Simulated scan of single mutants.
Amino acid sequence: MNQDEYFSVHAGLTINVEPLPEQFSLPDDQAFLQEIPPLFRVASECSELEHNADKVLQQESKSMNRTLLDYLAAQNNKINLLLAFVLRQQDDPAYRQLTETFGASQLTYVSQQPLETGNQVRLKLFLENPPAAVYCYADVQDCQPVDGDAFQITLHYTRLQEEDRDLLIRAALHIQQKMLRQRALQRSEKQ
């Protein structure tokens, strides 16, 4: 699948955007993997384990005791709360932004500081569902003035683990499902 074929959703994710010097060259794949902070790797692995366990539990839920399922869900929620709290410690207020849209190939956000098209940034994305954080690099695809002295910036991922791309897809799907449920609820309330 071509990266441009991924869809984006309108959602406000907390991100850290660290502009890099113009002469910066991206690390190769091996150096990139070694550079990823351990907490981001742990979060990615935990999210993958949870996703796999969810699939198994959905298949086996009819034959399992409801009390046991509720207990496992409560334990999972506690772990997710703790993981989300620990990941938030990686959020640097000096680089904090909020996305307008995000997907598995790119994101957009509005900033008071313009970025030069083609420049590289180090990027951290903090996901709420699944609770995880993504560490990657991106280049500035576009920077357009909006609303006076603000700029809408589009970043395209240039170094991103496939597992993290899957996380972004799941996060986008979760938000899209949530929006569809809200829309259906609003329609039913109007009737």
Rank of each mutant, 00 (worst) to 15 (best):
F32V: 05
T117Q: 11
E100N: 12
P27E: 07
E50K: 10
F24T: 13
V56A: 07
Q161H: 15
L26R: 09
V86F: 03
Q112R: 00
R159Y: 07
N16R: 05
P131C: 01
E163C: 05
E50N: 15
Q144G: 10
L72K: 11
R96E: 08
K62R: 14
Q182F: 11
I36G: 02
D142I: 01
E128R: 08
L33V: 14
M64H: 00
Q191C: 01
K62A: 06
L69W: 05
S111H: 07
P19G: 01
L115F: 10
H10N: 07
N16Y: 01
D166N: 13
L72R: 04
I175V: 15
N52K: 15
A133P: 02
Q58Y: 11
A171N: 05
Y109K: 00
E5G: 13
A132I: 04
L81Q: 15
Q113D: 10
L167C: 02
D149R: 12
A133E: 04
F7G: 11
N65L: 00
L125M: 13
C143V: 10
S63V: 10
L168M: 15
L127K: 04
G118N: 13
N16K: 06
A53R: 14
L39G: 09
A171Q: 05
R41C: 09
Q97P: 04
Y6M: 08
L155W: 02
G118F: 01
N65T: 02
R165M: 05
E45M: 09
F85T: 06
Q106H: 11
H174P: 01
L33H: 14
F151L: 07
H156N: 07
Q58M: 13
D166Y: 06
L68R: 11
D142V: 03
N76V: 06
L87D: 04
E163D: 12
L81N: 15
P38Y: 00
E48T: 04
Q176A: 10
D147Q: 12
E35N: 14
P131L: 02
P93E: 01
A138M: 03
D91L: 11
V121A: 07
S25C: 08
D70L: 13
L72T: 09
N2D: 04
A104N: 02
G148W: 10
S63M: 10
Q112C: 12
N76R: 07
Q97S: 01
Q23W: 12
C46F: 02
E116T: 13
K190N: 14
Y95Q: 02
K62T: 07
K78Y: 08
A172L: 06
L82F: 09
L123N: 03
F85L: 08
R88D: 12
R88K: 12
Y157A: 05
R88E: 09
L13D: 01
A43M: 03
A132T: 04
Y95E: 05
C143E: 11
F102G: 01
K55M: 14
